[in-house]
Design a protein around this nucleic acid. Sequence first.
DNA 1: AGATATAATGTATAAATATGCAGAAAACAA
DNA 2: TTGTTTTCTGCATATTTATACATTATATCT
Lengths: 161, 161
Amino acid sequence: MQKTKRLLAIEKLITEEEISSHEVLLKKLKSKGLSCTQATLSRNLRQLGAGRIPDGRGGYKYFLPENNSNLPSKAAKIQVLPAIREIVEAKGLLVIKTIPGNASNTAFYIDNTSRFEIAGTIAGDDTILIIPRDGISTNQVHTCLEIILPGLHEQIKKNNF
Amino acid sequence: MQKTKRLLAIEKLITEEEISSHEVLLKKLKSKGLSCTQATLSRNLRQLGAGRIPDGRGGYKYFLPENNSNLPSKAAKIQVLPAIREIVEAKGLLVIKTIPGNASNTAFYIDNTSRFEIAGTIAGDDTILIIPRDGISTNQVHTCLEIILPGLHEQIKKNNF
DNA sequence: AGATATAATGTATAAATATGCAGAAAACAA
DNA sequence: TTGTTTTCTGCATATTTATACATTATATCT
């Protein structure tokens, strides 16, 4: 769970600041009590889909391609996330329960993220079936969902009261 | 002038194929008679603003952020480019002459590319003034213009007959 | 054209980033 | 809990990418 915090922190840092290297990012993470090695950082950046591009001033900076459309991202937080009630697993698949009428919207958002881990989704009225790609565990899909919907699992816990 | 060809070829290759490393790209360029060293490639990729991102399958690929909006790019070719008549230099500035009435459109396109080299533009009816940023030579702006309007200089030569 | 300045390139190397492997931690099952 | 499997991580290192410096090519000026 330290990892989730770290992923979120990395996302935040590279979108809000101009990070020029792993080394710089490592120091920033350390100052937040989320230290790790450069190797782990390399792996985490890959998981987040983060890349590196010229900054236009002779250097380089990290960035998240997803940020092109930060409207969907914002929408995800205020529309998609609050509509999710719970997630259960069955036969290697995941079933997401939503507020009635919201399954289609939610599945649309998940599809549009085009995450490799998810082969496809089917949505009813308040239920979504998520089919993980071959070789992908349900745990990996959970991580994936947490990445595209930060705070999802924590919110679900709260909903259970 | 080999360089311009190479830049265009690189652009084309990384947008049309999934290029995973300099090494792969070098081979492709070589097969097109546009060989260079890895060092030059590194510099060229930076000039083009090309970056590297995870490909979603455990590897990495190069890409051009500009590609988000390839509508403007197409428009540039069929609308902006044909409207340009000539480019002259004066006092470290560049003056672009266009077909009457087209200066505003053209300047708008140039502004929207947000190239670091160009501090700003002023457009009349058939004349645009381009102000290079401090420390940027007119030659560098020419290269910059060729990047955002491929074929520009060749076309101007033709127009002079 | 010849002289001077600017940009482009290659070579060698430095710097940055990715990864195989092994151990640690966490999740899961019974 | 205990054993079993999966994920995560660090270490050391391989791989990849960037860059200082020297050289060549290209453009600029008179």
